[in-house]
């Protein structure tokens, strides 16, 4: 109990009062608050989320037929940009959900775009195999760097970026974007 009385308002006469200067308490509180704020921001959204999607929308990549496609053409839609590869099993798995969502919500302004960290011939063959109903762009290994700039610091796949109608990055996801989570996001954005 002596420790508590030492910092209480009225310390015993025989002990010098132990108090932190007011500025130190304020400074400490500020540090704690800032650290906590930064921590929350880091764990719930990636740093890229605060940015707008101008850089991403400004890029242009070839599709499976070699035609350049600028991401800007889907501005105004809820854009889900999915980095994937044919050699990535979890990517293939979640694409089934994406195909379904594109089919059911495409008319409401939802647009998926896949950016493959892969070779064009493999992507073309696989897209045909699964009846891919949204564009598959060929990013090659350079696409990994693009995804890194968007918050994929581990450069692993799948990695997904969700862009709102007004061109803001509202979510980034490393690993599969689960159906329930996707539904929840789309409920807010569509």
């Amino acid at each position: 109990m002596s420790e508590t009385t030492a910092v209480s308002e009225r310390p015993p006469e025989d002990r010098p009062p132990v108090r932190f200067p007011r500025w130190a308490i304020i400074a400490l509180a500020a540090i704690v608050a800032l650290t906590a704020g930064a921590y929350v921001a880091r764990t719930t959204v990636s740093p890229a989320s605060a940015r707008d999607a101008a850089t991403l929308l400004g890029i242009s990549l070839p599709d499976v037929d070699g035609r350049e496609q600028k991401l800007d053409q889907w501005r105004g839609k809820v854009l889900v940009v999915n980095f994937w590869a044919t050699w990535c099993a979890p990517c293939r798995e979640e694409m089934r959900d994406f195909i379904r969502a594109q089919k059911s919500d495409g008319s409401r302004g939802l647009q998926f775009v896949g950016i493959a960290v892969d070779q064009a011939d493999k992507v073309k063959q696989y897209a045909r195999e699964i009846d891919l109903n949204y564009p598959a762009l060929i990013g090659g290994m350079g696409a990994m760097q693009l995804s890194q700039s968007l918050g994929n610091d581990l450069m692993a796949l799948p990695f997904t970026v969700v862009v709102s109608r007004d061109g803001k990055i509202v979510h980034t996801q490393l690993g599969p974007l689960k159906q329930a989570a996707l539904d929840e996001l789309l409920a807010k954005l569509l």
Partner: peptide, 18 residues
Amino acid sequence: CLLTAGPAPAADSGLPSG
């Protein structure tokens, strides 16, 4: 502090596993 934590609610889609 508010600015730092600000974007979180808007972007938080209930995905702690982001």
